[in-house]
């Protein structure tokens, strides 16, 4: 979409690099909350250009576009290039609900050798590669807030968080990193 104003994210300019991890705000992205019955998946996958995953705790990606399985009829679609996903969905004339949540969420990228330990300061799930492999994605909790956690590589995670909770998330991760680097 043509944009006149510049997006001002809640974490703009925030980053932290320690000997254990790097924590930084992700670039602004476009996002939709997609809901659909299974019969609609094929058409929606075609329209979005990414195969909507149907397994729990999984995700699919093509280029900078990602589809996260959040629930049996729920996906979070992210386009890091900020392509209008609403438009893409409109192409699929099947039963579904597409709601723009581009600005509801913001994302934090956490990477580094101690990334599992940093996240484990607040996330109760087992984040070992066996239990949470590369490409795994899950809605879960981080301390006192809800997040969507996505493992992009062995040492890289993307955390999707509602914007007003992002300061809490970033601060908690900072504290956790402090524990690991001291």
């Amino acid at each position: 979409m043509a944009e006149i104003a510049t997006r001002m994210g809640p974490l703009d300019g925030r980053s932290l690099a320690t000997n254990a991890v790097v924590i930084e705000a992700a670039r602004p992205a476009s996002r939709i909350a997609l809901r659909a019955p299974s019969a609609s998946l094929a058409a929606l996958s075609l329209a979005l250009g990414v195969d909507l995953p149907d397994r729990p705790k999984s995700a699919a990606s093509r280029g900078t576009r990602h589809a996260f399985w959040l629930g049996p009829d729920e996906w979070l679609i992210i386009d890091e290039d900020r392509t209008d996903l609403n438009v893409a969905c409109r192409g699929a004339e099947v039963l579904h609900s597409c709601v723009d949540v581009s600005h509801r969420n913001t994302a934090i990228l956490v990477s580094g050798a101690r990334v599992e330990d940093v996240l484990s300061a607040g996330c109760p799930q087992d984040l070992s590669l066996e239990a949470f492999p590369v490409g795994a994605c899950s809605r879960t909790v981080l301390g006192k807030i809800e997040i969507v956690l996505y493992r992009t590589a062995e040492d890289d995670f993307r955390i999707e968080v509602w914007r007003s909770f992002s300061d809490y998330a970033f601060t908690l991760l900072t504290e956790a990193a402090r524990d690991l680097s001291s």
Partner: peptide
């Protein structure tokens, strides 16, 4: 039963 795994009670 939807995620088909055990998850922490906090969720």
């Amino acid at each position: 039963p939807y995620c088909q795994e055990e998850r922490p009670e906090l969720e």
